[in-house]
Design a protein around this nucleic acid. Structure first.
Length: 571
RNA sequence: GCCCCCGUAGCUCAGUGGAUAGAGCAAUGGAUUCCUAAUCCAUGUGCCGCAUGUUCGAUUCAUGCCGGGGGCACCA
């Protein structure tokens, strides 16, 4: 993965500055008796700085006088006044400070105070927005992990987009991230795959077959059978059926997996590790895990099966790990697999699953706890369904009947950027409507192009600027000081917010926050662009504005990069 | 029956304790001799599902109910 330069704490942090100004004011007020000095053992509320939604309420505000009211036994407005009396602002950082509503203190920042942000953005460049919360910790994101029994469909695409973006964001925030795909290449459904293909194979030779309902129905099964026929002729008809089925299974799984890899590649998703389920059987880790739990007396025998006492660890009932026919369940390999993840040194692991697997969380958490690892080192993100639409009407999809729209088809039709972006326009918790026609539209309806267009427009301005003789765009205090328009301040404020958005997105594992932020920044830019000319008659002003829009361009690029979406120079 | 997610403007959705709850779409009217009109500007809309509680303050937290979706195998 890429390594980002992260300079911890070097970002321009308005909130922290205001916070410290208030804290000094409080100290002063305690000293001179404007406010009652707190008892030493008293828990003081933290000074919280927030951005009001309404412009008239200032750039920032704090509710500290309300939270102090009960401790001070004083009316919030009186406390606010006492704080104001003691605020020291020698650099005239504030234009004005107001007390409003029930006792909010609203701060109006001097425009000039925003300018250093620009310098910051240009200096940090590719690293702007990176908050070092990971501190190099090893973290694993496991996602997609679709069974190699059929092609990836749109639902997998959503998981891929979310997983890849989360990995990008965490990497950006200083985690040492590994992306992993778990291949279910063992067990019953692989056998079913083999049976399905073998039946179709027999069919190709004119044999009468009965194709059971639990077999895979799709066209691709017939294609796999045709491939086998062209390679092996009728050889598989002349060997023992079990062997033939097994051969078909191996061939089919390998072929499908290769296609899955290809599809993901063209979707822009690359994994660091492809982990085979079979490999944890081969290495004896499953057997070892079971034995270990038996020694701990948390696996018991009932009616010929082995049960893991997950109910001792918060699950609602116990779960079978070895069936009475001697076969292990998937849960057994999952136990070993998750143990293996932690043994590989990951401090945290993130599993991204379809929402239909949510019932699985308690038992996996139980197995982790039982293995002596704190369960909160695992995060599970559940991805809700994707409803595929065309012009507002549902596109029929049924895995059972083998009719589903594959990820490949969608990417081919709407493009990778549009697909990835749209997958990230919702919280993973919410079902997502994906309209193929809308995704192709190149209008305001389609947020991808709305954001990308900002990047292209700015690139164009910069090209134009070069033609006009502006060789390099750099910090010029005099020029930057000319950025006085309200739309310019809006842009500066919005850009200042980016690191906080990234941080929140990383902590809560929610990439859609970046998506929304980018749409918002794009909107501020387009409004600015339509109202003011960057390249204008005044060379100094043009210089300042170029410096401004180049910063916007960098943030758009960084943000889109986190989503895995390209930032085009031209559109 | 039990568990999980969702319920916010006509539609699709943001908003994890603050003030007058936001955005896009849809609707109507406007903007381009000029850096990309894949753009912008203007004009509305809300028992934030219901109820109780916690709080100075609840769309946000807790509990219960209603409605929608999903999950509850010696399946994967």
């Amino acid at each position: 993965m890429k390594i980002y330069k992260i300079t911890d704490g070097s970002q321009f942090k308005m909130k922290n500055k205001i916070k410290s100004l208030i804290n000094s004011a409080l100290t002063l007020a305690y000293d001179n008796g404007d406010l009652k000095s707190p008892e030493t053992d008293e828990a003081l509320p933290e000074v919280l700085i927030e951005e009001p939604k309404v412009g008239a309420q200032g750039d920032y505000s704090t509710n500290i006088s309300m939270t102090l009211a009960s401790i001070q036994k004083m009316a919030p407005k009186k406390i606010a006044k006492a704080i104001l009396r003691n605020i020291n602002d020698p650099d005239s950082f504030f234009d004005k400070i107001e007390i409003a509503g029930p006792g909010f203190i609203n701060f109006f920042i001097n425009k000039a105070a925003w300018y250093p942000i620009l310098k910051e953005i240009h200096q940090m460049d590719l690293g702007y927005g990176a908050e070092n919360i990971g501190k190099g910790k090893k973290i694993q994101v496991e996602f997609v992990s679709a069974n190699p029994t059929g092609p990836l469909h749109v639902g997998h695409g959503r998981g891929a987009a979310v997983g890849d973006s989360i990995a990008n964001i965490l990497n950006f925030c200083g985690f040492n991230v590994e992306k992993e795909y778990y291949i279910n290449d063992s067990g019953r459904q692989i056998n079913t795959l083999g049976r399905s293909v073998f039946l179709r194979y027999k069919e190709l030779f004119g044999k009468d077959i009965v194709f059971p309902g639990d077999c895979y129905q799709g066209r691709y099964i017939v294609e796999l059978a045709e491939n086998i026929k062209s390679i092996n002729g009728d050889n598989f008809l002349n060997i023992e059926e079990a062997t033939a089925v097994n051969n078909c299974a191996r061939f089919a799984a390998e072929t499908i997996l290769a296609e899955i890899k290809e599809d993901l590649e063209s979707f822009g998703v690359q994994f660091d590790n492809w982990f085979s389920e079979q490999s944890i059987f081969d290495s004896g880790k499953v057997a070892k895990a079971i034995e270990n739990f038996q020694n701990k007396k948390i696996i018991y025998n009932k009616e010929g099966a082995l049960w893991f006492k997950t109910s001792d660890f918060g699950d609602e009932k116990d779960r079978v790990v070895v069936r009475n026919n001697g076969l292990t369940t998937y849960f057994a390999s999952d136990i070993a697999y998750h143990q293996d993840k932690f043994n590989r040194g990951f401090e945290r692991i993130i599993d991204i699953w379809g929402a239909d697997h949510h019932g699985y969380i308690p038992r996996i958490a139980a197995s982790i706890e039982a293995s002596g690892v704190n369960r909160n080192r695992l995060d599970v993100i559940l991805i809700q369904l994707v409803n595929l639409l065309r012009d507002g009407l549902p596109v029929a999809m049924s895995t059972r009947a083998g009719e589903f729209v594959t990820l490949k088809e969608v990417v081919k039709e709407v493009g990778r950027d549009a697909a990835r972006f749209i997958f990230l326009t919702r919280n993973s918790d919410s079902p997502l409507d994906f309209d193929l026609e809308l995704a192709k539209k190149k209008t305001n309806d389609n947020p991808v192009y709305y954001v990308q267009y900002v990047h292209a427009r700015i690139s164009s301005i910069i090209r134009k600027g070069k033609e006009n003789g502006v060789a390099d765009i750099k910090w010029n205090a005099e020029a930057v000081n000319m950025l006085k328009e309200s739309e310019e301040t809006d842009l500066l404020k919005s850009m200042n917010r980016f690191p906080a958005i990234v941080k929140q997105s990383a902590m809560r594992l929610e990439p859609h926050r970046i998506t929304f932020y980018l749409m918002n920044l794009a909107s501020s830019f387009h409004a600015y662009y339509n109202k003011h000319r960057v390249l204008n008659d005044d060379p100094l002003l043009s210089c300042g504005r170029l410096y401004l829009v180049l910063a916007v361009k960098k943030i758009i690029r960084n943000g889109l990069g986190l989503l895995g979406v390209s930032a085009p120079e031209k559109m």
